[in-house]
Design a protein around this nucleic acid. Structure first.
Lengths: 224, 224
DNA sequence: CGCCTATTTGAAAACCGTCAAAGTATGTGG
DNA sequence: CCACATACTTTGACGGTTTTCAAATAGGCG
């Protein structure tokens, strides 16, 4: 399935500017890896040897709190990269990665990727943009977590997710809670209210935004 | 004071690997700017034309919540850079910057810096490391804010600050609150307890860690 | 000395987490 | 195809942490 990989690589923004020969070079550094649903990819604190690109599936990046609560930093799917922080900074992975669904990944060795970057400044600049975007988002979330109430945090989370994924959000209440730093019960209570108000609808494992306008008002802190 | 600038530049990690001629090049792109205490440098949402290096003084990076509470993302002093996210990602500044003390800064135009990076991949890689480090720290703070109690958040904040600044922390209770996402009153109550237990001491505008070991235990969540 | 800012303390209330229990989909094995 | 296990969703009650509001004290600077 090697051709498959080249086709995927060229669609990824950070590699989009590359010539065919360079894509081939990346491809030669790639190791395809398959993980079953719920399998662990790496743990926070592990030595960081690989960085990854998602071919298929869904990967969860998370950290644990001191009382074993899980905080989800992000979910990644087709075409997205993760594990970049550790690889680019020399240190252990700062968070854990787990395959939520059965997933196929491309792994590239840290050293290989680093020398590739040295030879391809344009890709390095793309990486800079990517990191900047992630940093910007992390800072927005910091503001939300530090200063906003649960209702606003949830509203903003749903909006952020739907920017990326569309109106149908494939997450359980549990996962939404772990992403917004609250508990399952509180999330359910809040979303139930919204369901009554026609702002969202939901089935097991999925939530659909039906009235984005109202949700956006809630996210701003004014009431509906 | 131009020579002054060259000497500072060469001490900054991201430029440390440069030849004299290249330092000179950066220097030629530099514009020295002076801000009085409490002066605003840029606002969140402003068009991002400049990125900055601190020569002297103290700069606060913050965002506002929907109810006008201020969340401090970081403080920067001599030798540190800020405003990099916007400049490297094409968008407005994601946060506001304000001079806390009277400050001297080097400003470099976005376009100038970007073309410099294209010519100097080694500097680009340094920037990648810097961004990775900031992202890692932001993720740690996310975990703290989402999952830990105020006491632990404050303990970790003090420890993080003292890693960077030493045992004497030049911040008011108000600033510590804004950094840890809590209120002045709660911060005072917590720090007062710690003062009674001999973990810290403080005078107006300054807090000193006197028993780092105990503080570290508090940060872990076990009690003292 | 007087003003402004930082620190402190108290009391009440809100928000949200915790605990407990039950209902409802989904899939699997018999 | 049904029964059962599992995971997800839901609801209620209670209590703790933290915010909010109010007011007083103290330090530093002109």
């Amino acid at each position: 399935m090697k051709t498959d990989i080249a086709e995927l690589l060229i669609k990824i923004p950070i590699f989009a500017s590359l010539e065919e020969a360079e894509i081939k070079e990346i491809e030669s550094l790639s190791h395809e890896k398959v993980f079953a649903a719920n399998a662990n990819i790496f743990w926070e604190g592990d030595a960081a040897d690989w960085f990854y690109i998602v071919i298929d599936g869904k990967v969860k990046i998370s950290k644990l709190t001191s009382n074993a609560r899980e905080i989800v930093l992000s979910f990644f799917s087709r075409g997205e990269i993760f594990g970049e922080v550790a690889v680019l900074e020399n240190g252990p992975y700062p968070a854990s990665a787990q395959a939520v669904d059965a997933s196929r990944l491309i792994g590239i060795r840290k050293a290989d990727f680093w020398s590739f970057l040295l030879k391809h400044p344009a890709v390095a600049l793309k990486i800079i943009s990517l990191l900047s975007g992630r940093l910007r988002e992390a800072q927005n979330r910091l503001r939300d977590l530090a200063g906003e109430r649960v209702e606003q945090r949830l509203a903003r989370l749903l909006l952020r997710l739907s920017d990326k994924l569309g109106a149908i959000l494939p997450f359980t209440r549990q996962e939404l809670s772990d992403m917004s730093g609250t508990t399952t019960e509180t999330t359910i209570r809040t979303l139930s209210q919204w369901k009554d108000q026609g702002i969202i609808s939901s089935v097991r494992g999925k939530t659909t935004i039906t009235d984005e306008k109202k949700l956006r008002k809630l996210a701003e802190g004014r009431d509906s």
